[in-house]
């Protein structure tokens, strides 16, 4: 790409870059540095922060080195939070992949009225998580909710959902599938529509039938999209927050729905342990980073790129 050579100085570019550059420095770089410093402190968030005005007194009063990190990793709570998150992923990931690929196949058909279906699938995507979580909290009410009423009609006694230690996390998973399936369905739809139909025609000539076509053409050709969906889903899973906060206010019975961002939020603003919360958020960053890098490494084994 050729740039306009006659206007080639930084002073010409500066007015255009200035707003975003200011935002980058004040609201992105500065928070990252501040967060690293705070994570090595025992600052409570209530005492006046002197880091920017009198750093020396801040360090004298609050610096504790890597103690926050050690405390978090040594405590039982962190491992429970990690276990809860992994449990969410184990339930959520297969369900969202299957349901969103199914939705994409439905949306890919050229029947009359498909536009109406498309809109229906998007409605949960458009809904805010707070509203969606309130709806689910009420729908899952053990005595008065519609879900157990429907289960009752087909002769199943529904569980106590959010009030049960066993069922609290599956309830969060259910609501999350409902919220996300339209979004990932749309992503898969894009993938389906980009598969060259000549592959299917060639396979038909060779005598391939329905399921073989799915197995040997559709799934391999969709693998780059599947990879994208898995990476995004796992990153999102580590950042679960509104649904947990709204549906299970105190993180479920016996902490069954304690997750990272919920913990970080509560340490910072409810328990007034800002330093601890900041350290927690960096540990979360490292975990997300490791998981994402790992997937990028593993993708070579199963992701099929056409070109």
């Amino acid at each position: 790409m050729q740039k306009i050579a006659r206007h080639n100085s930084f002073s010409k570019a500066l007015p255009f870059i200035l707003p975003s550059l200011a935002g980058l420095i004040v609201f992105s770089l500065l928070p990252i540095i501040t967060s690293l410093i705070i994570s090595t402190s025992s600052w409570d968030g209530l005492t006046k922060l002197t880091l920017f005005t009198d750093a020396k007194s801040f360090f004298n009063n609050f610096y504790i080195g890597l103690k926050n990190f050690r405390d978090i990793l040594k405590g039982d709570e962190f491992w429970k939070v990690l276990k809860n998150t992994l449990y969410f992923i184990v339930l959520y990931l297969p369900l969202i992949l299957i349901s969103s690929i199914a939705v994409a196949n439905i949306l890919n058909k050229k029947y009359r009225g498909i536009g109406f279906f498309r809109v229906l699938y998007y409605v949960p995507v458009l809904t805010s998580w707070v509203a969606g979580a309130l709806i689910w909290k009420w729908a899952l009410s053990p005595e008065y909710g519609i879900i157990n009423e429907i289960l009752d009609l087909i002769g199943i006694e529904g569980p106590k959902w959010l009030q049960s230690e066993t069922w609290a996390m599956p309830s969060i998973v259910l609501a999350s599938i409902w919220k996300d399936v339209g979004y990932f369905g749309l992503i898969f739809l894009g993938g389906l529509q980009s598969i060259d139909p000549t592959y299917y025609e060639a396979a038909e000539i060779d005598g391939a039938t329905g399921w073989r076509k799915v197995w040997y053409i559709t799934l391999p050709m969709l693998s780059p999209v599947t990879f994208f969906v898995i990476v995004i889903s796992i990153i999102n899973s580590f950042q679960l927050f509104p649904q947990v906060m709204v549906m299970t206010k105190d993180a479920g019975p016996n902490g069954a729905t304690q997750v990272f961002v919920e913990r970080i939020y509560k340490y910072a603003f409810k328990y007034h342990k800002m330093g601890y919360a900041a350290a927690y958020s960096w540990i979360l960053f490292v975990i997300i980073f490791i998981f994402t890098t790992l997937q990028l490494k593993l993708q070579k084994r199963w992701v099929h790129y056409d070109t």
Partner: peptide, 10 residues
Amino acid sequence: QVVFIPLFII
């Protein structure tokens, strides 16, 4: 989700 605390502080 990692930087909302310092963002609040700043």
